[in-house]
């Protein structure tokens, strides 16, 4: 089943070298391309990804405030402090929670909406646009907008509370509630993106298979469960991949909303890095956080690619 999408892509890949060289691709035809195109990419990647990562790994063994050269070697102390840090543990938990909500709420919601909007029904384009709009907004802008929405003095929540005649809530100031307020914004912000992925996936689907299922007397749910979902498999796996990586990187929306507060209850790994590494001029400690974050991301990405996306 998954072969359909792979087949669709293959002739296109082959046609390029055919047209360019007038003969099937061989190693002889590939070398000039390699020599011409690889060095710039490799150089940039080394310069801006590998070297900084290596530097961070080096700094993480030092106690260093960013001024002068790092001199105070502290071994693994930064990591030791990090794993015993209450706020870092909260940050890890929050990242887990964000991933969970992305998978359990956001992706199914996006899929459900996509199922409704993938067909050429009246108003579909308008709704697609509306649902996609939050994703277009810059993260910081979205954070600022929602800070105003949640505001208990002059915000939308205050107005609603006033209308209902109840005491206005200050969700962002409550350390038990703030993280849920942020989760709501995360779902609101990114479901449109996943929905678009699914719509694209649905539109690329072979309609004949659905039709065949229909002729066989499959119900709506059966069609979805046994035909659409398996055919969408690669899109779903990609969507989950984006959701996980996006959750791990979540930063710019949280800063204007809560800045990680109150009482560190809304820290994620990246806001933790910024608050404890950059703002406190603890570059050594910050680098240690960066290294841990990097290891987590790489491990997740590779395991996921190797297992779930093996055939995509």
């Amino acid at each position: 089943m998954t072969d359909t999408s792979a087949n669709a892509a293959r002739p296109f890949q082959l046609s390029l070298p055919l047209r360019g060289l007038g003969k099937p691709s061989t190693m002889g035809g590939r070398w000039p391309v390699l020599i011409l195109f690889l060095p710039p990419a490799l150089l940039l990647f080394t310069l801006f990804v590998i070297l900084p990562m290596g530097e961070a790994a080096w700094y993480s063994f030092y106690h260093w405030n960013g001024y002068g050269a790092p001199e105070q070697f502290v071994g693994l102390r930064n990591f030791q402090v990090l794993f015993n840090h209450g706020a870092f543990v909260t940050a890890l938990k929050n990242n887990g929670l964000i991933i969970l909500v992305s998978l359990v709420v956001q992706v199914p919601l996006a899929l459900w909406l996509a199922m409704m909007l993938a067909h050429r029904i009246p108003g579909a384009v308008t709704f697609r646009l509306i649902f996609f709009l939050p994703y277009v907004l810059a993260d910081v802008a979205a954070g600022l907008i929602w800070r105003f929405v949640y505001d208990g003095d002059y915000g939308l929540f205050a107005a609603i509370a006033g209308f209902l005649g109840v005491e206005s809530p200050y969700v962002l100031a409550d350390r038990n509630l703030a993280i849920y307020a942020i989760l709501a914004v995360v779902v609101w912000k990114y479901f449109g993106f996943h929905m678009m992925l699914f719509i694209a996936g649905l539109q690329a689907m072979d309609k004949n298979v659905l039709e065949a299922a229909e002729i066989d007397g499959a119900t709506g749910w059966q069609k979805f469960r046994y035909v659409t979902l398996p055919l969408l498999g690669s899109t779903v796996r990609l969507s989950v991949f984006f959701a996980v990586i996006g959750s791990l990187q979540l930063f710019d929306m949280i800063m204007p909303l809560t800045g990680g507060g109150p009482s560190n209850s809304t820290q994620t790994m990246v806001t933790f890095l910024y608050t404890y590494g950059v703002m406190r001029m603890q570059v050594g400690f910050g680098s240690a956080i960066g290294v841990v974050l990097f290891v987590i991301c790489v491990t997740l990405a590779f395991t996921y690619k190797r297992s779930a996306m093996r055939n995509d």
Binding site: L172, P262, S263
Partner: peptide, 15 residues
């Protein structure tokens, strides 16, 4: 004031 744990300095001065 209510919500003080999230209040910025301008909001505080505003209150």
């Amino acid at each position: 004031q209510a919500g003080w744990q999230a209040a910025t300095w301008p909001e505080t001065q505003g209150a």
